[in-house]
Simulated assay, not measured.
Amino acid sequence: MRVYRPRAGRLVRREEPVPEPRHGEVLVRVRATSLNYRDLLILNGDHFADGGSGLVPVSDAAGEVAAVGEGVTRFAEGDRVINAFHPGWIAGRMPDTLVGYGNGQDGWLAEYRAVSEHALVALPDSLSFEQGATLPCAAVTAWVSLDGVRPGDVVLTLGTGGVSLFAVQLAKARGARVVATTSSAEKAVKLTGLGADTVIDYATTPEWGKAVLDATGGRGADRIVEVGGPGTFAQSLVAAGTHHADIALVGFVGTGGAPVDFMDLFRSGATVRKIWVGSREDTEDLLRWLAVWPIEPVIDSVHPFEQADAAFRHFESRANVGKVVITTE
């Protein structure tokens, strides 16, 4: 089978044997994968949880069951599946130790992958393999970040990455008012088309936290899907106002932001929660919800397997709006 492994910051295609599913395992024929910021960080050696070199990258995939090992009861040959982002987190509280794809074990950038049947979730026929591959990390992260959002709440999203675009759509479907930030008029049009009620250009409005307050009559955001980390957190605190907002701390794609002022944090009364994607149960809950209130994942581009390295470079350029997908066809 064809498989990619990293070498010196690049992806090298290799031929390896198709794995045999062991007891309790399912052999998945991978049809599509999608890229996340962590995949790029791991490839470049910048991820804080780098688990060593040479591992197959990419955490998200969709495919079909090619074979099952002894004792498998959850799936049968021919079933369509996606992976759960954390193969060892089924439900409940996050385990103390998690082994991630690409930084603790081989990921999904291969034609076949053998994993535990408990690390997979059924993919509905209403979603293509390309769409399904966008869900395990970005969509589940957005879903968990929005837990408890009610109709009429103000949700703030940042930028046009995968998590943020899913958050815009899911928040609107929950009846929330969405305020989004971006850096260009073109991306603002995209956000508006997905349902954002107010879009703020952070490039021309550096104090965008105050702009969020102005846009909401001084109320601020009830829920903030905070993907920027050090580059945006100080302004997110401003946008939270003083009414005990909930900040879902998702990522750290931003750099160079102002230091966090303790008094801003104190006045906000905000609750800050670390979001580590979610469990398999969270993934199943999301898919059940999508069966009733469907949304269409935003896919920026689809690349053939032979151009996987080019797909990573396109993603690294941050020119994309939405998910970058790699297919094995």
Score class of each variant (00 low, 15 high):
residue 12 V to C: 11
residue 16 E to R: 14
residue 18 V to K: 14
residue 21 P to E: 14
residue 22 R to W: 02
residue 24 G to S: 15
residue 26 V to N: 13
residue 29 R to D: 11
residue 30 V to N: 14
residue 30 V to R: 13
residue 34 S to K: 07
residue 36 N to W: 04
residue 41 L to M: 15
residue 52 G to Q: 06
residue 59 S to T: 05
residue 60 D to Q: 09
residue 61 A to Q: 12
residue 65 V to H: 08
residue 69 G to H: 06
residue 72 V to S: 11
residue 74 R to Y: 13
residue 76 A to F: 04
residue 85 F to I: 07
residue 94 M to I: 01
residue 97 T to K: 05
residue 101 Y to C: 07
residue 102 G to T: 03
residue 113 R to D: 04
residue 120 L to R: 12
residue 121 V to L: 15
residue 127 L to I: 06
residue 133 A to E: 15
residue 135 L to E: 11
residue 137 C to Q: 09
residue 140 V to F: 02
residue 143 W to V: 03
residue 145 S to N: 06
residue 146 L to D: 07
residue 148 G to C: 14
residue 152 G to F: 10
residue 153 D to K: 13
residue 154 V to L: 02
residue 155 V to H: 11
residue 161 G to M: 01
residue 161 G to K: 03
residue 163 V to M: 06
residue 164 S to N: 02
residue 171 A to I: 02
residue 180 A to Q: 02
residue 186 E to L: 12
residue 187 K to W: 07
residue 195 G to S: 11
residue 199 V to F: 00
residue 200 I to L: 10
residue 200 I to K: 10
residue 208 W to G: 02
residue 209 G to R: 01
residue 211 A to C: 06
residue 213 L to D: 04
residue 216 T to D: 08
residue 217 G to I: 12
residue 220 G to P: 05
residue 221 A to Y: 07
residue 222 D to Q: 04
residue 229 G to N: 02
residue 233 F to G: 02
residue 233 F to S: 03
residue 248 A to K: 00
residue 253 V to C: 07
residue 257 G to N: 05
residue 262 F to M: 12
residue 265 L to P: 01
residue 265 L to C: 03
residue 271 T to I: 10
residue 274 K to A: 14
residue 290 L to Y: 08
residue 292 V to Y: 07
residue 296 E to F: 09
residue 301 S to L: 12
residue 308 A to F: 07
residue 310 A to F: 04
residue 314 H to T: 14
residue 316 E to M: 09
residue 318 R to K: 13
residue 321 V to L: 08
residue 325 V to C: 14
residue 329 E to L: 10
